[in-house]
Design a protein around this nucleic acid. Structure first.
Length: 294
DNA sequence: CACTTGACCTGTCCGC
DNA sequence: TGCGGACAGGTCAAGT
């Protein structure tokens, strides 16, 4: 569920909280949570300090003074929660202020810092991961070589967007929006929201989109992503930011998880269907399927 | 090659 | 109340 706005929100929080802190210890539950540990951990993670926290697509990068970086993917249920208090490592009951920010059975990786603070990587469904790699090698990973441009970048134009969508002209538009090699960072929530905004039915083939629709979708996508960042992301159930706070974008969602409710634009009842293997929400009046004839 | 579907996991919800 | 099954969705491997 963490998509671009949620990962961006986590990044902003961690960039404020982590730089300058020095790693003193790391724990992880399972090698799959930290695939290349412990080979490089003692040499390049312990005693290294955090230089910067950045984001590319849905991936977080924690750059270390050792010339290595932690690469983190939250997938659907991942959380990265910072806690400045070391008290939870002792016995006894958690204090009220720590509720929701404590390690639990979903905690996969714990980083401890020399000042007593810690960072928990929690992931209920275990799809996420943390890796430790030389910073210089990150851009050589297949994912980073293939991933598309950042949709909110100042130099990303609607013409570039159109041209990249057209690389998959025979696919439905929803599947293409979800394709990370076309545009980075879009997941199920913002695909549905942006298609509603542009009044495009999700099964419309890219080749059937008129020029005005490319521009409308470009604008709609950037608007919903920016609005969600402004609201701290979407919290359906597990997502929280670096300090354990939920985001409020779902309050502003127009169709996502609003089946049975009235379309904010025309009042027609929003429906839920299945497109590209995903639950898909749309207004059947505003978003008409493209007719292949006529 | 272009495109679609299934696997990876666990918690939750729904019907019986 | 318990239990089976569907569902949630990001990404990659496997299938068509």
């Amino acid at each position: 569920m963490p998509e671009l706005p949620e990962v961006e929100t986590v990044k902003v929080g961690l960039q404020r909280l982590l730089p300058g802190r020095t790693v003193s210890a790391v724990q992880f539950d399972n090698p799959k949570s930290f695939p290349n540990a412990p080979a490089d951990v003692s040499e390049f993670l312990i005693q290294a300090s955090v230089v910067a926290v950045t984001r590319r697509a849905k991936v977080l990068l924690i750059e270390l003074s050792s010339k290595y970086s932690l690469i983190i993917h939250l997938k659907m249920t991942g959380q990265l929660v910072f806690n400045s208090d070391s008290a939870h490592f002792g016995a006894g009951h958690p204090s009220a202020s720590l509720v929701g920010r404590l390690p639990d059975k979903s905690t996969r990786v714990t980083l401890q810092f020399t000042d007593g603070s810690s960072l928990f990587f929690n992931d209920q469904r275990k799809f996420g991961w943390v890796r430790l790699l030389p910073t210089a090698e990150i851009l050589q990973l297949d994912f980073f070589k293939k991933v598309g441009p950042e949709p909110l970048a100042a130099d990303f134009t609607w013409q570039q967007f159109r041209d990249r969508l057209l690389r998959r002209k025979n696919s439905n538009i929803k599947a293409v929006l979800l394709d990370q090699t076309v545009v980075a960072g879009v997941g199920n929530i913002y695909a549905d929201e942006s298609l509603w905004g542009a009044k495009i039915h999700p099964t419309t083939l890219v080749r059937d989109l008129g020029p005005a629709k490319f521009k409308a979708l470009y604008t709609s996508l950037r608007d919903v992503l920016q609005l969600s960042i402004d609201k701290g992301g979407s919290s359906n159930h597990t997502y929280v930011d670096a300090e354990g706070n939920k985001g409020s974008y779902m309050t502003f969602a127009n169709v996502f998880r609003r089946e049975g409710q009235a379309c904010p634009r025309c009042g027609t009842t929003i429906i839920k269907t299945r497109v590209a293997g995903r639950g898909t929400h749309l207004c059947p009046h505003c978003q008409k399927p493209k007719r292949t004839t006529g």
